[in-house]
Computed example of a mutant assay.
Amino acid sequence: MASRVPFQLTGRYAELNKWEVIQGPGDARPTGLQIIEDEGLVGSMGDKVALVTGVSSGIGPKTVQALAATGATVFGTARNLDKAREALGSSLLETGRVHLLFMDQTDLASVRACAAEFRRQSPGGKLNILVNNAAVMKTPEDRTKDGFELQFGTNHLSHFLLFYLLKDIMIASATPEFCSRVVNVSSSGHRYGPVRFDNLTLQGEYDGWAAYGQSKTANIYMATQIDRLYGARGLHGYSLDPGSFINPNLQKYAQEEVEAAKRSERMTKYFFNLEQGCATSVYGAVSKELEGRGGLYLEGASVAGPVPADGDPVEYGYGEWAFNRENEERLWEISKKMVGVE
């Protein structure tokens, strides 16, 4: 299929994402490790510290693996630490540079405890990179332990609180050569719906995809507002769509949609493997192309523009409500109140 005009991606990997050339998992699109190699960062970031949430399945472990190749100290969070250890593998954990922390993102008390433990363990009290990766998708209607709608609470509020508790050390860790970075793993699913300020719990009108879309839009708003508030102090925010890949844990409530996607020639071309699926997160975390620039939406290890008006669900680009200063500022203040900071 011919690419739409104008093409929505810019950067060194943009051309590899054109619909004329993509061929599905394992094609020429970069892996996370390839980005580390292309950036000349293998073993060169021994003075940096990164934190990645949700490392027990999916692209989380691959993100840790790629960042660890830089020589940085990398912390990963998980609710099931045994599962995370298995996913990461003993060879990675035995390097002494990769550490696991318990965090249940349905419980804000657990988020607070994790942030405190990270402060105790982080070398030099640093945090240069925070990748907010963990997520749930299209869950049945439910609440977190603090009473929030499950997807909004897990995907947005837990990450908002984690960042808020660590933002001071992220600002302090920034250098003129490498600004600190918050990388929020959103999704093209943000185009399913905006943040419903009139009914954040979707009480009485719950829909799993609408709730997921709201939480993923919130990820974008948070990253953009971080950049607005702290960019001048050396802390930048990015949001991204990692692309589509098979992750049975994340997609357990969306099996019908996954099976339908497998039958679509267009979708099967767009799919990544997990090594490629982490690439945009890694790009956001380390790419020199982004240094000093923030508030960007990333896709295909590139900077993305707006989705074409006639774009389908897998077309590159962000949705019409993805950038809205009034809503970004509004969500920020609401989120502070919801998680109990300031």
Rank of each mutant, 00 (worst) to 15 (best):
G213T: 05
T53Y: 02
L92E: 07
L81K: 03
R85V: 02
R143Q: 14
L16Y: 00
S239W: 11
H236P: 00
F118P: 07
Q8F: 00
K83I: 06
N324I: 03
P123K: 06
A84T: 10
S57A: 15
M338V: 12
V111F: 01
D198L: 01
I246N: 15
Q251A: 14
L93W: 01
E315V: 08
A72G: 07
G284W: 10
A309M: 13
N17S: 14
G40L: 00
S239G: 12
D107P: 02
F163V: 11
E315P: 00
V21M: 01
L108T: 01
L229F: 03
E177N: 05
G24M: 10
G125H: 07
G24V: 07
K18A: 09
G234S: 06
L81M: 13
V282Q: 07
L51A: 08
E342V: 12
N133W: 10
L229T: 06
R143K: 15
W209L: 15
Q121C: 07
A261C: 15
L130Q: 05
V21R: 11
C179V: 00
P242A: 13
A28Y: 00
Y297R: 08
R266P: 02
E37S: 14
T106I: 04
L200T: 07
S158T: 11
N132W: 00
Q8D: 00
Q276K: 12
T63S: 09
Q255M: 13
Q34N: 01
D104R: 03
E265A: 15
F160L: 13
T217V: 12
Y206E: 04
P140I: 15
T53D: 12
G208M: 04
G11A: 05
G43W: 02
K216Y: 08
G26D: 08
G96H: 05
Q8S: 09
L161W: 08
E289Q: 07
I35N: 03
L274W: 02
E39P: 02
D198V: 03
D47K: 03
E86K: 15
V5W: 05
R119F: 00
V185Q: 05
W19V: 10
A69L: 09
L240V: 11
T268F: 01
L108M: 10
E333R: 09
E37H: 09
P30L: 11
K145N: 11
Q34M: 11
G11N: 09
L130D: 03
V182T: 02
P308V: 14
P313W: 11
W19F: 13
G292Y: 00
Q105R: 05
S215H: 05
R12M: 08
T144P: 04
R266S: 14
P6V: 14
E149V: 03
P61A: 14
L274M: 14
S173Y: 03
G294K: 07
I226T: 13
T268L: 06
Y297C: 14
F323Y: 14
